[in-house]
């Protein structure tokens, strides 16, 4: 009992460290000491931290097993891009309109993922273990093929004389991808959202909601006997993790400036699973350090011209962790 309620993990060092690193990197970037490539790596590190910490909420703290995180990322990315690129051509606006608008569209993307997570969670969270894994895998693939079918949907609306709607859906691009997304994401926003993610998830875990999630992880039948509404809390954790994944996806889309349904495939989910299991389940520090360092280390392969080994190394790390140290490198927080 004491172990569950007495410990409070603080991430102040992480917040300060990330802010300082962000300041230093943007300073060096300003004076052309570091090229845009390094700034981009830093932003990808932050996004991977957001994604891994939010995946940790489902897989680590609630004890479900989802490999469908890329689907939430796709929804967040596409929704925010629909707002910034298709509905409003915001790249032509003056900057002090762009910034709040970007913030709002990222959050709308997050809320779309939240809604998807809650609605999808209603039927599929009845499943457990490997069956849940497969349905979430199927979710990723259904989402991918649904995005690719957007042209057919546009044609359908055209035949129903909903011309404006049809034009909007036409611009999502289906198999062509959605291009000319404005590059709004910068170091400030990635650092801001990373800190917000870690802060809010940490606060949630220390609240009564967090207690329930940990109880569900340890023994869901016992939790139900204590009067916990299991399906509501499972859905909530799925939806909140989905929200942050959607935010991550929105940031990701506005760095790359071009998104395609194939960006958000099964391999993307596996990437986050590798970060999560390397860092250790139920450990936010583990997720942060594993996601950050692995992103950086695997970028080093590009420098020594071995980037084709990247996709070989991910699964190899996963297999070795599972066989040698399935609890991950870091100890559990709770």
């Amino acid at each position: 009992m004491k172990e569950v309620s007495g410990k409070k993990v603080s991430y102040v060092y992480f917040y300060i460290g990330l802010i300082i690193t962000g300041l230093v990197i943007s300073f060096l970037g300003r004076f052309q000491i570091l090229s845009r490539y390094y700034l981009q790596i830093f932003m990808f590190m932050c996004i991977n931290i957001i994604m891994t910490v939010s995946l940790n909420l489902i897989n680590g703290f609630t004890g479900e097993f989802s490999i469908g995180h890329a689907a939430f990322m796709a929804i967040g990315a596409y929704t925010s891009c629909i707002f910034t690129t298709i509905l409003f051509s915001s790249s032509k606006w003056p900057p002090y309109y762009q910034i709040p608008f970007f913030l709002i569209s990222i959050l709308i993307g997050g809320f779309a993922s939240f809604a998807l997570g809650y609605i999808i969670g209603l039927p599929i969270l009845r499943l457990k273990g490997d069956y849940l894994a497969i349905v979430t895998l199927a979710l990723v693939e259904v989402m991918r093929s649904a995005i690719k079918l957007s042209d057919e949907l546009a044609g359908l609306f055209q035949r129903m004389h909903l011309t404006r709607l049809s034009q909007i859906i036409q611009q999502i691009g289906g198999p062509r991808g959605l291009s000319s997304v404005p590059g709004f994401t910068n170091i400030f926003w990635t650092v801001f959202f990373t800190i917000l993610t870690v802060f809010i998830i940490n606060r949630l875990l220390n609240s009564s909601y967090g207690r329930v999630w940990l109880a569900l992880r340890d023994d869901d039948i016992a939790a139900e006997m204590m009067g916990v509404n299991i399906s509501f809390y499972k859905n909530l954790s799925f939806a909140i993790a989905g929200f942050w994944a959607g935010v991550g996806g929105g940031l990701y889309a506005h760095i790359l400036r071009y998104i395609h349904a194939d960006n958000f495939n099964f391999i993307k989910s596996i990437e986050y699973l590798v970060y999560l299991y390397l860092g250790g389940m139920s450990s936010i520090w583990g997720s942060i350090i594993a996601a950050g360092s692995l992103t950086f280390l695997l970028e080093l392969l590009r420098i020594v011209n071995m980037q084709q080994w990247r996709l070989v190394i991910y699964p190899l790390i996963l297999i070795i962790i599972m066989i040698k140290k399935p609890e991950g490198l870091f100890k559990r927080d709770f």
Binding site: D130, A133, L311, Y314, P315, L318, I319, P326
Partner: peptide, 29 residues
């Protein structure tokens, strides 16, 4: 075989890893 008495999910994750490893390793140029 080393995972047979561990939780079932570890074996599932390992099999995902084996699958991706075979694909990506054999696809190297």
């Amino acid at each position: 075989r080393p995972l047979r008495d561990k939780p079932r999910l570890t074996m599932l994750i390992t099999s995902i890893g084996v699958s991706l490893f075979l694909e990506n390793f054999l696809a190297l140029d």
